[in-house]
Design a protein around this nucleic acid. Structure first.
Length: 121
DNA sequence: CGGCTGACGACCT
DNA sequence: GAGGTCGCCAGCC
């Protein structure tokens, strides 16, 4: 499925185009797999905007359940936010729910094997 | 319109 | 492997 900006209804939270692009890429991460901020940035054509990818996901809000933001972790294979924090704990819970083993320290077990690559694009 | 922020990452110790 | 520094750059104030 392709991304269509015009399908966003009145309750769309996203504004800036960059964010929309990030969300579109993240939607492409299959359940049970993870990717990194850097990989998403690379898929967008600019490896240097990894940090901005994180910023975009932080701007996500309720209503965008179609964006699997929890599948995005940092290059070290860890949840990039304290697991004791609200979002960090929720990310871990969601990953566990997909069968992905996450330590209580936020580290993704078998990160290398579960890392999704956007290859072609 | 200038300055600050930061869900990152490559490097170095 | 773990911890600190530095460069990136779209959004926000």
């Amino acid at each position: 499925m392709s991304y269509d900006p015009q399908r966003h209804g009145p309750e769309r939270i996203v504004g800036p185009g960059f964010h929309d692009r990030v969300f579109a890429v993240v939607r492409g991460v299959p359940e049970g797999f993870v990717t990194t901020y850097g990989d998403v940035a690379a898929a967008l054509g600019r490896r240097s905007v990894a940090r901005k990818v994180g910023h975009a996901l932080a701007a996500l809000a309720a209503g965008h359940d179609d964006v699997p933001w929890h599948r995005v972790v940092n290059a070290a294979g860890r949840i990039s936010r304290p697991v004791e924090s609200g979002s960090g704990a929720e990310q871990r819970r969601r990953l566990l729910g997909e069968g992905i083993d996450v330590g209580d320290d936020g580290r993704i077990a078998e990160f290398r094997r579960l890392r999704h690559s956007f290859d072609g694009a």
